[in-house]
Nucleic acid binder design. Structure first.
Length: 1012
RNA sequence: GCCGGAGUGGCGGAAUGGUAGACGCACUCGACUCAAAAUCGAGUAUUCGCAAGGAUGUGGAGGUUCGAGUCCUCUCUCCGGCACCA
């Protein structure tokens, strides 16, 4: 018996990993060499990991495998591929380790990095490790600090729409003050050139802080007095009673204002939105970013506040609204509890200050983001007015208005805002309707050139409880089916008008009034009998029939229509002639009235009556001398942590209270050694207890975790450069990341911050593109078998090292790509991994038989299978449809085995398709077949269409859409011929016998459908 | 509440408007074997039928079309994000 070679993954994988490493197979060519060779760049990037103590589980490599397949594919297509890896190695867990053990987090981090690298290496990725970056190494963070300094020394020019040097702004101030300076700021104070020159250095510094892109300010932090430290949001949990406590030790956490550093990301808000249009990201992640930035256009309108008793002017107050069209519906003004004018200007005038103060304290205690109930308190003794409104408007403090959005003040329009509506109901404030929905009667639309008359009408819905039906009229002369309706006479009450109409038209006279169905509705139609257009402004009234008592009705009415009671189920679903009816029914079914928040037509708004909302928004803003403004939900990003394990901020506080930058030649400003990693106890970072550090005046805050990760992709382009963060040549050659792969969890963090930094670096002449990541793919999660996320906590973690050991890296890679669509989440199933292992083994066995058979030319079937899979894999990898590539290769393999007529050369082509997915076995067999070099630097095969043509195709014949037979014909068969064959087919005959053929459809090469 | 995404066999999933369930797992039967594993072959949506064959079937209800998992309208469920943003 002959000894059969077996597939030994352990041996093969180790062997080739060593080979690739020694031969530097995956080393990216330098810019110069690539240019000489004429190779185009392609940059495939993974989101680099944060090395945590837990190590990798099988979910982590999913994205890395996908990007590796893609990178290998691009490399075989002849691109100079940049596919690097590194570590985001500053951060909290290492810090916590240091606090717990008292040891320096550096060596600990290094050991974790080592562990991660080892785990990654055995999976066989094609990273160019010579370009590795680690954000905690001083050679790297030197440039993170350098970028910080550029931001610190820049402001945003809103006219040029780019960042500019702060020196330019200072020159401008010297000449003109800050009038019309086009610099982005949140500060509204205006000063002249003379005033600027007379400012002290400290005052100047203070002013400039409002313009710099990196600036000092104050912000609320989570302060834990027990631990004497500031906590990040993910270090806080909610305890049983709903109080915020620290995750470790469950100590209470409170809010505290602290000095911080910020990034003025809001200056880039518009570009962060518009840039989304030019990048190939999933719509959901783009939408998430758009929502997060939260752009909304609205108006700022000034109201003035006066003393109620004497009418003395006290102060202006600006409100922000997106619905200036509802201005005439204002019935109160609502201020945030911490609106600056409350304490500053109004306190003295408010006659119920004690109660107001108590209320403010109460609201302050409530946890943010957890508004259970809308509350408020009226400010007695003062009122608001607006020149164009002829009313005194009460002012409230409320808990539903935020001081940090808009102007911290809103106009309360209960009729057209849900929250205002609730508030008005609770505090019994008037609800003034100014916008009504507008419908056009499509069956009878207004005609051009006809006069339009407006009239007030009433629609009456009458319900008969006994029979569960509604009163309708069936018109005799027209094809109309309506509810009772009619005009409202001058001075007549709506309810009386409704009762009168019902009595006149139907005779029913004993009705019980239930309610008015919300606001009015405008309907436009053509009144044929009067030859004019009508605009009916209609109120819906709802009655119940008490009994069938009837009065006589006129003959005219009897001739007009029949009375018809319609069962409620029909009434709610049936389309009737009144186009307003769906509104009435919706309101009827809701049971209570609500605010109408959509756009519509204005009423009760003086000169603006009849305008539509959108137009009126600007018109009213103009009229009241308001401003059209744009607001964003996004806030400036906090750029400081009171911790040790992060990049030091390269600034020096002088004795005079001034801030100086660390000179570029002195970068990096390295982290000092400290005795203790414990927080200082006063909220400052451990750096504040290093006396030499403090003596030198160095800033004690460190940078947040996202600093280093906001530009690392640029460093990979030129990782060893000592003079610049990356050379101009490297930046212009690589330009941007072509394909970025990572999880969706970074949608509003890393992915937003790095776009911001990249845009800034472009503005100051370094980055070459507006956007850093041209295309982005988000890999789906791999869930544990129990459907939960893999986590130590649930004890459901599967370790990739073990899978690699038992099944091999190639099998793991094939399996993770085969599981399902790359961007969808799937549960891990160790049971089904065997399928991928069998596939790899069968390829191995096929290689043995191909060598033995030694066939010169493959047979037709094999050739067709090969070339169609070449085509499929090429397009599937391009689309990240890795799962279908693999199933396609399995199908091809089935054919090769069945036919057993595959040539060596054709097998090698197949092997090339497999190489990106299963690199080790592909390399092994490539080598065994006597090929030179590495399969991974060989050329990806191209499909030859001539092998794809088929002489015969199977065409299903369907009758009325149901498949009844199949025939085998030439793909070139004519419509006439196939019609003959199909109709005379025995199986088909059974179905069409004696029936007339109405239509015969032949979709060439696909299907026949006979319609009878 | 708002904005995304998704609902297809026992499971993971496939399907430019053209034979739904490819491919894989699991399962059943068979071959090989003393036996088992591995491997190979056949089968495997539901339902009626001995079979040939028929009917039903892609969360639900309608619609467009010769033809719908795919397009349109409404609706239910699940997942993700945001959430007092005026």
């Amino acid at each position: 018996m002959k000894k059969v070679e077996t597939y030994n993954h352990l041996k093969i994988e180790k062997k080739w990993q060593k080979f690739w490493d020694e031969k530097k197979t995956y080393q990216t060519l330098s810019v110069d060499k690539a240019k000489v060779k004429g190779l185009k760049p392609y940059y495939v990037l993974d989101m680099f990991p944060y090395p945590s103590g837990a190590g990798l589980h099988v979910g982590h490599p999913r994205g890395y495998i996908g990007s590796d397949v893609f990178a290998r594919f691009k490399r075989m297509q002849g691109f100079n591929v940049l596919h690097p890896m590194g570590f985001d190695s500053f951060g909290l867990p290492a810090e916590q380790y240091a606090i717990k053990t008292g040891k320096h987090p550096g060596p600990f981090t290094d050991s974790l990095v080592k562990k991660y690298k080892k785990q990654l290496e055995i999976i066989g990725f094609s990273y160019d490790w010579s370009r590795e970056v680690e954000t905690h190494s001083p050679e790297y963070y030197k440039w993170t600090q350098w970028i910080f300094l550029q931001l610190y020394n820049s402001y945003y020019d809103t006219k040029k729409n780019k960042a500019e040097s702060i020196e330019t702004l200072i020159k401008y101030f010297n000449k003109n003050g800050n009038k019309d300076c086009n610099a982005f700021t949140n500060d509204s104070a205006i000063f002249s050139a003379l005033e600027w020159k007379n400012f002290t250095e400290k005052e100047k510094q203070y002013v400039l802080m409002s313009y710099r892109l990196a600036y000092e300010g104050y912000a609320e932090v989570n302060w834990c007095p027990e631990m004497g430290t500031v906590l990040a949001n993910d270090e806080i949990i909610e305890d049983k009673n709903g109080n915020m406590v620290s995750e470790r030790g469950e100590y209470p956490v409170e809010k505290k204002m602290m000095r911080q550093w910020f990034m003025r990301i809001t200056a880039y808000a518009d570009r962060l939105i518009s840039g989304l249009d030019e990048i190939d990201w999933s719509s959901s992640i783009k939408q998430t970013q758009k929502n997060w930035i939260g752009k909304s256009e609205g108006s700022e309108i000034t109201f003035y506040i006066e003393d109620k008793e004497f009418g003395n002017f006290i102060s202006n107050v600006d409100i922000f609204t997106t619905r200036a069209d509802t201005l005439f519906g204002v019935t109160y003004i609502a201020l945030a509890i911490d609106h600056p004018i409350v304490e500053r200007l109004l306190k003295e005038q408010i006659t119920n200050w004690d109660q107001v103060y108590t209320y403010i304290q109460e609201v302050k205690k409530q946890e943010k983001n957890d508004l259970k109930e809308i509350t408020g308190i009226k400010l007695e003794g003062i009122v608001a007015k607006q020149s164009f409104l002829d009313i005194e408007i009460p002012i409230y403090l409320t808990n539903y208005v935020l001081s940090n959005y808009g102007t911290g003040a809103v106009m309360g329009v209960p009729a057209h805002d849900e929250r205002d509506f609730k508030f008005a109901e609770k505090y019994d404030l008037p609800i003034q309707e100014v916008i009504i929905p507008s419908v056009i009667d499509l069956s009878n639309p207004p005609q051009k050139g006809k006069e339009t008359k407006t009239r007030n009408t009433v629609h009456v819905i009458v319900y008969n409880k006994k029979t569960d039906s509604f009163l309708t009229l069936r018109w005799k002369k027209f094809d109309w089916h309506t509810i009772v309706l009619g005009g409202i006479d001058d001075g007549e009450d709506v309810i009386n008008a409704a009762l009168r109409e019902v009595k006149e038209e139907t005779g029913y006279s004993n009705l019980l009034f239930k309610r008015i169905l919300g606001g009015k509705i405008e309907a436009k139609y053509f009144a044929a009998h009067k030859n004019e257009n009508r605009t009916a402004i209609t109120t819906g009234v709802y009655f119940e029939l008490i009994d069938e008592t009837k009065v006589d009705i006129s003959q005219e009415e009897k001739d007009n229509f029949d009375i018809e009671w319609v069962k409620s189920s029909d009434f709610f679903t049936k389309k009737m002639t009144n186009s307003e009816l769906p509104f009435w029914i919706e309101r009827l079914q809701k049971g209570k009235n609500e605010a109408f928040c959509d756009y519509g037509t204005l009423i009760n708004s003086g000169d603006f009556d009849g305008m539509d909302s959108e137009y009126a928004r600007t018109k009213i803003t103009e009229k009241v001398k308001g401003k059209i403004v744009t607001k964003y939900k996004m806030r400036d990003a906090i750029f400081a942590r009171q911790r040790y394990w992060g990049e030091p901020i390269p600034l020096i506080h002088t004795k005079d209270g001034l801030i100086e930058t660390v000179k570029e030649k002195d970068l990096p400003l390295e982290l000092p050694k400290v005795k203790s990693y414990q927080p200082s106890g006063n909220g400052e970072s451990p750096l504040s207890s290093v006396s030499s550090w403090v003596k030198s005046g160095y800033e004690t805050n460190t940078m947040p975790g996202w600093a280093g990760s906001s530009w690392y992709f640029l460093r990979y382009m030129d990782p060893k450069n000592k003079k610049e963060f990356a050379s101009k040549e490297a930046l212009s050659y690589w330009k941007q990341v072509d394909m970025y792969i990572g999880g969706t969890e970074h949608a509003t963090g890393h992915l937003l911050y790095s776009r911001f930094w990249h845009k800034f670096l472009k503005d100051i002449g370094y980055a070459k593109t507006e956007e850093p990541f041209k295309a982005l793919k988000n890999q789906g999660l791999i869930l544990a078998t129990d459907g939960r996320k893999m986590s130590k906590r649930w004890g459901n973690v599967i370790n990739p090292d073990e899978i690699v050991k038992t099944y091999g890296a190639d099998t793991l890679r094939v399996y993770e790509m085969f599981m399902g669509p790359f961007e969808a989440s799937q549960p891990w199933n160790t049971e089904s991994i065997i399928g991928s292992r069998r596939f790899v083994e069968r390829v191995f066995r096929l290689s043995v038989s191909v060598l033995e058979n030694n066939i010169k030319v493959s047979n037709k079937e094999s050739l067709r299978a090969l070339h169609s899979i070449i085509e499929k894999v090429t397009s599937d990898i391009q689309n990240f449809s890795f799962n279908t590539s693999i199933s396609g290769m399995m199908i091809a393999l089935n054919t090769f085995e069945k036919e057993n007529q595959l040539s060596k050369n054709d097998f090698l082509k197949f092997l090339s398709l497999l190489a990106p997915f299963a690199p080790h076995i592909a390399e092994e067999l490539w080598n065994k077949f006597g090929q030179k070099g590495s399969i991974h630097t060989s050329v990806f095969p191209k499909a030859d269409k001539k092998y794809l043509a088929q002489e015969e195709v199977i065409i299903p014949i369907s009758v009325n859409g149901k498949v009844r037979a199949e025939i085998i014909v030439s793909p070139k068969i004519s419509q006439e011929d196939i019609e003959n064959i199909a109709i005379n087919n025995e199986k088909v005959k059974v179905w069409i016998e004696g029936k007339e053929i109405k239509k015969f459809i032949y979709v060439p090469g696909k299907i026949v459908n006979i319609v009878i």
